[in-house]
């Protein structure tokens, strides 16, 4: 379990993480969601003891990272797949990591096998594709067989095959009872991977809870409908109490499923040319939620800074 309490990080005048408190539960994938620059990576670096919090603390199973003995056995992390010396082989990279936590060299071969890099283990890591580097990073994270795993934007820049692989991999790690925290700025990706969500914007907590709930709450489902008898259909839908917006040749109907609209159309004898549920509103919903915090800071940025001093 990861527990952040009033975590704050200030870089000069910028408040990267602002009084952030959240918990990450074991046995499920928790998505760490926020727009670029929201403070996700900074928070993860603080979890790993790489950056020192300005205030507050973050603990892993009750201890700060620096208190952990041989931390790779407790926490594995993939922060940046390119944190490698380009002229060092994948095997040597993992070997020094293993030795640093007194893990057996046998473990290096095991994790290489696990991520499918055994064949290229002796090749220099600088020549790896992003997908291969990502696998190597995951192998490094798994070296100590840790109960807590952190992944920072693991699917960024990967091809679909790599994305699916990582997604399944994270879910299987959580299914084994591990604590898995995955950051992303893509809500659609998190909707597929995560069960819990910690959503932040501009370093502040926006929401914490189950992913399904968050998506349910924040996304209004709309259906696009086209019909030659548009006016008649619009009147009937408004009559049923559905909010309707005219858009081009058709209507955007909120809060109704396609079946309901089809039934309404049939009841009044209207011909329907198109009836399509509108997806992709997740991103919009997410933006609506984070917009406030973004606007707050850009609009009042000048007023806020002196106050904080």
């Amino acid at each position: 379990m990861i527990e952040a309490v009033q975590l704050t990080k200030r870089y000069g005048q910028t408040l990267a993480v602002d009084n952030l408190s959240f918990t990450v539960q074991p046995g499920r994938v928790t998505g760490f969601l926020g727009p670029n620059g929201a403070g996700k990576s900074t928070t993860m670096r603080m979890i790993l003891g790489l950056d020192n919090p300005t205030a507050g603390s973050v603990r892993i199973d009750g201890r700060t990272y620096r208190e952990l003995d041989r931390p790779l056995r407790t926490v594995g992390a993939l922060m940046d797949a390119k944190w490698l010396h380009p002229n060092r082989s994948a095997y040597s990279h993992l070997l020094w990591l293993a030795r640093s936590n007194r893990l057996p060299a046998r473990r290096v071969n095991e994790v290489l096998d696990l991520v499918g890099l055994t064949a290229v283990a002796k090749r220099r890591a600088g020549g790896f594709s992003l997908g291969m580097s990502q696998r190597l990073g995951i192998a490094a994270a798994l070296l100590g067989d840790p109960g807590v795993l952190l992944f920072d934007e693991p699917v960024n820049g990967l091809d679909p095959e790599g994305i699916v692989w990582i997604r399944r991999f994270m879910q299987s790690l959580a299914a084994e009872g591990r604590t898995v925290l995955v950051s992303s700025h893509l809500l659609s990706e998190m909707a597929l991977t995560a069960e819990d969500l910690v959503v932040i914007g501009r370093g502040r907590l926006i929401s914490q809870g189950s992913a399904a709930e968050f998506i349910e709450r924040s996304s209004t489902s709309t259906v696009f409908v086209r019909s030659p008898q548009l006016a008649k259909l619009e009147a009937a839908l408004v009559d049923k109490g559905f909010p309707v917006v005219t858009e081009g040749e058709g209507l955007q109907v909120s809060g109704a499923r396609t079946e309901v609209i089809g039934d309404v159309a049939a009841a009044i004898g209207a011909v329907v040319h198109e009836l399509s549920p509108q997806r992709g509103s997740l991103e919009q919903a997410f933006m609506r939620l984070t917009e406030d915090s973004v606007e707050y800071h850009t609009g009042l940025g000048d007023a806020v800074v002196p106050e904080g001093k």
């Binding site: 670096r45 790993l48 003891g49 790489l50 990272y65 620096r66 952990l68 931390p71 790779l72 992390a77 922060m79 940046d80 390119k82 944190w83 490698l84 010396h85 380009p86 990591l97 640093s100 936590n101 490094a140």
Partner: peptide
């Protein structure tokens, strides 16, 4: 300096916080 250049210093301090 190459440890800083390639980010391996972060992996190092992550593996050994001391």
């Amino acid at each position: 300096t190459t440890e800083y250049r390639f980010g391996t210093i972060k992996s190092t301090f992550q593996a050994v916080p001391n």
